[in-house]
Design a protein around this nucleic acid. Sequence first.
DNA 1: TCAAAAGTGTTATCCTTACACCCATGT
DNA 2: ACATGGGTGTAAGGATAACACTTTTGA
Lengths: 321, 321
Amino acid sequence: MSESGALIVGLNAVIVAVTDDAPQLLVVPSAEGTPALPFGPFDPKTHRTFEIGLREWVSAQAQFQLGFVEQLYTFGDQGREAPLAELSGTGEARVISIGYLALTPDSSPPPEGGGVWRDWYRFFPWEDWRAGEPAVIRAVIAPALRRWADEAATPGKREARRDRIRIAFGLDGMTWNEERVLDRYELLYETGLVPEASRDQGSDRPAPDGMGEVMASDHRRILATAISRLRAKVKYRPVVFEMMPERFTLSHLQRVMEAIVGFPLHKQNFRRALDRSGFVDGTGRMESATGGRPAELFTFRREALREGPASGLATPRLNQS
Amino acid sequence: MSESGALIVGLNAVIVAVTDDAPQLLVVPSAEGTPALPFGPFDPKTHRTFEIGLREWVSAQAQFQLGFVEQLYTFGDQGREAPLAELSGTGEARVISIGYLALTPDSSPPPEGGGVWRDWYRFFPWEDWRAGEPAVIRAVIAPALRRWADEAATPGKREARRDRIRIAFGLDGMTWNEERVLDRYELLYETGLVPEASRDQGSDRPAPDGMGEVMASDHRRILATAISRLRAKVKYRPVVFEMMPERFTLSHLQRVMEAIVGFPLHKQNFRRALDRSGFVDGTGRMESATGGRPAELFTFRREALREGPASGLATPRLNQS
DNA sequence: TCAAAAGTGTTATCCTTACACCCATGT
DNA sequence: ACATGGGTGTAAGGATAACACTTTTGA
C-alpha cells in the first residue's frame, strides 16, 4: 500500500435559505473572482467528525449556526479544478472535497467577509420553471444539444445521445423531471455548453450566453448535486420547515416549496395534502396582509414525525397551459 | 491551512448479489478473523476517479467485473476502528473510507482469496421479516431498549428515547419501516446491544446473543447504510434488474425483491404494478418448473427507462395475519 | 367597487388494496 | 387426484387532479 501523502480533504458547504421568492445560496468570492461555495479544510487533528469541522468553520466565517446538515457526496476526480491545492502550497496535492448540504431559516446578510446570499437560479436559469418553460431551453440549449446528437459517429450513438437529451430535459413528449439537475448539468458540461467545460480543458470553443453564472472549480456541479438532493428530499422528509420561520402562512410555505422544486403548485391540492399530512397547526393568529385578505399563521408540528411514516410534502403540479 | 498529511483514503465496497432466497454480500476475512467488507486504498497517483480505483482492485481481487456502482457515504469519525492505519505503517494516520454500493447478477463463488458470499441477514437478523416478525425483536431488542429508555435522567429524555425506539422499530402502533436500517443499527450501537459497542469503547457490558454476526471496524454500519439505500432505491429506480440474470420468471423477480426489502409481497398486485411499469417483456419461452406449472421467462426492457419518468418497482405489502 | 390574495366544495379518474378463483405440470 | 406454484378478474376505498366558487381585506 503506497503511502501517497498528497491528499487534502476539504469540506464544501451548500448553505441554503429561502426568501419569499428565491432560494438563496451562500457564496464567497474565489481567487479568480467567480463566486465559490464556502470551503474549509478538514483537519483530522482537531475535528472529531466531518460535521463538527463543518459547523465550526461555518460559524466562524459566516457567524451563524447551521441547523439541518447532511452529507451530499465526495468529489475526487482528477481534472477538477483545484485552486485549493495552490492555496495549501503543495502544488502536487490531490484535493478531495466532501460536499455538505445545510439548511437554515435565517437569510439575513452575513457580516463583512462572511459571504453573500445569491439566488441559486442565477447559476441554473434553466431550472426555474415557475413562470413556465425558461426561454434558454428552446432558444439555446435544445438546438445546441440536437446538433451535438447529430454529430455522433454511428446511428446507434446518435440515438443514445438523443435519448439522454430527451430524458434530461423532458423534450419530445417526455415530461420535465425537476430532480435531474445533475444529469442536465453534466450533459451541458460534456457538450461544452457551460463555460466551465472550456475553462477546465483549455479549449477554445466558447459557451453560448444565458447559461448561468460560472462558479469556481467544480462548485456548480456540487450545487447541482445539492439541488437534486433537496428537490427529492422535500417530498419524502419534512425538511422544508428547516427553512421556515417559527410562524408562516400557507401561501408562504407554498412559495418556498415552489422556489425549491422550481415549478408552480396547485394551491388547493397542496393545502389538502398538507393537512392530511398533519405537519402544520393553525395558531389562531392572523398575518396583517400584504394586499389581500389576511392569512392565518401556522406552525410546524414536530410531533407529526412520530405519527405517520415520516414523509414529506406533496407537490401537486399546477397545469401550465 | 495546516498540511496534516496523515490522511488515508480507503474505498469500501458493499457488493451485493441475490441468490434465490438470500441477498448475498461479498466478505473477506479481516486480521481479527471477523468478516470484513472488501477494502482497497485509494491511490491518487494512479486512480483518476474513485470509481475507477474501486473497479480496478475489485476485479483484481475477486476476479469479476462490477456492473452498477454507486457512492454511498464517506465515513471519517474518529473512534471508528481503523485496522488499516496499522497496515499502512503509520500508526497515527486517520483513515477515511468512502463506501460504495455495487450490484451484480453473478453470485458464483469467487476464486480462492477473493472472498466469500454471505447472506446479509446473518449480520442483521432483525431485518428479515419475510417469515413474520423476527423473534429477537420481541425477545431481546424491545425489552432491552425499553430498559434503556427508563434509565434516562429526566422525563423529557425518557419520552425522547421512547419515541426514537417506536419510530426505529415500529413498536407501539407504529408500522415497521424497512428503510430505517441505519437508524436501528445506530440505536443498537448506542445502547450497547451490539458487540461492536463494547469492543470500540473497551467497555465490559457484553451484548446479548442473537444480535447478528460482528464485522470488522465499522463495516456493519457501512452495510446498514447500504441496505437502507438499496431498499429505498429499488422503489424508485429499476436497480433490481442489475441483480437478475438475462431471463427470469416473475416469481424469481418477486423473491429477489422480497429478499431486498425484507418482507413478503402481494403476488397479484406486484405483478399488476410490474406490467403497468412496462419494465418486463415476456419471451414466449417457459422455465421447466421446479414443482408446479411451468413459468414464463421474462427479460428486462431497458427502453422502458426512456418512456416513463424512470421509477422503480412497487412493493405491495402482503397482509401478515 | 375593484383588485388581490385567502380559503372552501365537489366531481371524475386512477391507483392501491383485498378479495376469490382458474390453469398447467410432476408425482 | 392432488399438491404446487403460475397466472387472471373484479370490486371497494382512497388519493389525485381538475374544475369553479366564496370571503376578506386594502386602495
